[in-house]
Amino acid sequence: MAEQPEIGIVVVSYNMARELPRTLQSLSPDYQKNCPPGRCEVIVVDNGSAEPPDAERFASLGMNVTVRRQQNPGPSPAAAVNMGLALTRAPLVGVWIDGARLASPGLIDACARAAQLHPKPVIATVNFHLGPSEQYLSMQSGYDRLEEDRLLASIDWPRGADRLGEISTQVWHGGRDGPMLESNALFLRRELWDELGGYDEAFEGPGGGAVNIDTFTRACESPGAQLIVVGNEGTYHQFHGGTISNAPGHAMEATKRLAAEYYRLRRKPLRPVKAPRWFFDPVSGALDRKL
């Protein structure tokens, strides 16, 4: 039996034939710093793609990738996430609820180091959209997959992955300085995932907008938990027709619906997390506990 990996990453995919291979490449040992083969395993759970991803396609990435299909896929990715959480063997688990998100090249190691700073850490990373503005805005000015491909080529990605910030935009309540609404690469220890019961499958909204926020909020509210935001790393959303990120003209309606669903299930308004956070700078190793 293979040695237990230190880190598990659950990635949910849905009709991401263009984006998922890039996302997985961004998690691979050749791309990630200080993340040799065996340190991390990746569980891809496909949530009903017309053409599900094939594990063989990712064999060349040099990492342990498992691909599973959610047998009864619904609009919400919550059950797919939970399937992935049940499959991973690692003590530290990160969730990519949106498989179209590229990781920055130091993200995995930074999150693992941050997790060692507290016995019950909630490790959050900053959220970006590729492109000149949030994609539901930029696409109204012509931003599309071709333009995104051109942008990535302009920084020579993946070799130029350290320059992703140059071609991206931080999203609202994305996490660096102000109250944080969610993390699209959320790392918790296995024990906290178990305590939360994973993602709450009562949330049925498409794309996971409300359930991702709910999970992040519940993790931060768990007694004794400490939010640690990892700086200088993040996830970068590729254009793929997402429920809110790529929804011009109805992004507000979609946000309104997820706010309504959250209120219906939790009986409190959806709010960014304002709890005191720690800020971890993986470059210097400094930990700022004053934020």
């Binding site: 507000m252 946000t255 309104k256």
Partner: peptide, 24 residues
């Protein structure tokens, strides 16, 4: 209130009062 907070408020009031209000 920032714009997102206004949109969230609209969703909450829909649930609270069982009415439908355009987000705009």
């Amino acid at each position: 209130m920032d714009s997102a907070e206004v949109v969230i408020m609209t969703g909450v009031l829909e649930e609270e009062f069982a009415i439908e209000v355009r987000a705009e």
